[in-house]
């Protein structure tokens, strides 16, 4: 049984801003879509001159351990391909829940919002 859900699209759009990839996650994210995204990002990084990835999760209601793992893996994969990943815009309620869940995502660089994330990437950009 699979009902169509609001805020759901078949694929997560990946935007290129210069040498930075911007991914905006919105609403409900199916496990399959998350895994597809992981694949899309790594192929985009290897295909072009990408030095940074910003994942905007300000539109995400919850991050569970599955999505947490996907995010962490995107960052490690990007790092292997010499790109830095910044997770931006986590909501307070999501942050509290993640910590309570035991998921502190120590390997991920975080920022308050997309602006700050881009700033961070441009500062440390080598």
């Amino acid at each position: 049984m699979s009902q169509p859900l609001p805020g759901q699209s078949a694929q997560v759009p990946v935007l290129a801003l210069g040498d930075v990839l911007l991914v905006s996650l919105q609403g409900e994210l199916h496990d399959g879509m998350a895994e597809q995204l992981q694949h899309d990002i790594s192929s985009r990084i290897s295909a072009s001159e990408v030095t940074g990835v910003v994942i905007d999760i300000s539109g995400v209601d919850i991050v569970d351990s599955f999505l947490g793992r996907v995010l962490a893996e995107i960052a490690s994969t990007a790092a292997l391909l010499a790109a830095r990943t910044v997770l931006a815009g986590m909501r307070p309620a999501v942050a509290i829940t993640l910590v309570e869940l035991g998921l502190t995502l120590p390997g991920l660089v975080t920022a308050l919002d997309v602006d700050r994330a881009l700033e961070l990437l441009s500062q440390g950009g080598t």
Binding site: I62, F66, I96, T97, E100
Partner: peptide, 15 residues
């Protein structure tokens, strides 16, 4: 915050 915790717990358990 409690809503978020509940939905997250549900997601973990349903998975």
């Amino acid at each position: 915050v409690q809503q978020t915790k509940l939905v997250t717990a549900a997601s973990e358990l349903a998975r």
